[in-house]
Amino acid sequence: MSDVGDDLGPRPELTELLTRLADDPQAPPSSVSALSVIAAARAEAQTAATDAMGASSGDKPPAPPGTGSTSRRHRPGRRRLFIGGLVAAAALAAIAAVVVPVTISGNSSNTSADSARVATAANPPAAEQSAAALAPAPGSAGSSGGAGATGEQEAGGAADTAGDASAAGAAAGAAGCWPELTEAASDALLDALPPGEFEGPIPLTADCGPAPVGGAVLGGTEPGTVLVVRVSAAEPGACLTDLADPCALQSGAVYLAADAAGVDTAYVYGNGFEVAVGGWPAVGDSVAVLSGLTTDELVAAAQAVLGTLG
């Protein structure tokens, strides 16, 4: 360290110092996991929704790469614009609430929104449909003042119902396609893996296969390793038809595949199932992650899972 501070070039001795400091064998195990991060992010999103204005500027994340830059210089301007818009909208609403009912008081109800209200009173189930059909016409209803507001509320209620239904459908569609592994399969898998090299399995929610039976992701205790397990209903050799990374027959019902990034995957077949065990392949723009296991260990893990499937 005799020359520390003399120039700004590479300093192997300082790098060595810092590396030794960071590679502390007595460091406690990390409490951070993908699940804890996702849970915290969801909780933070809920909090942010209820307290949108509470975040301090220092806690804001930087602009993501590949997106339009969110310069700090522009934020105050956008905030002023946003607040100005809110004030203008509130002023317009206040004027409309006072002036419009006065000017149209005494007029007969002959707008489409009023028709919807009348139809609702006469035949509620059918009226909901007609109100939904009338919903895209707030401009015409707006001219009727307070009566129009009622029509909009009814139409909006119908639209909300439809929205809830579509949201529920979307949520159902968004559910993970891989069911969790059975407890027996998880236990057999962990028993077959080198002890202490992987954490417990978490649900696999990506790369849906044609007939998913079960899936799991196991984070490796060795940095930068992960194990992905997928169980599908398939005939022996089904992996040969994989267009991206076709496997090759190893022996019997055991097949091996390796992608361009060197991620090995073992396929084992039996009882109408395919058990694939390996790292995380570089599919599309995702990051390839090795499993850190030998092919023999991958095959053993896959066979252990297959042994629990009837």
Binding site: A22, V32, L204, G224
Partner: peptide
């Protein structure tokens, strides 16, 4: 979505220790 969440999980799993070491320093 679940696919993106899975990619995120894998990324976190793969990079966690390196980020943690940097944070520790």
């Amino acid at each position: 979505g679940p696919e993106e969440e899975a990619k995120f999980s894998v990324y976190v799993t793969a990079r966690r220790d390196q980020v943690r070491r940097t944070a520790y320093l």
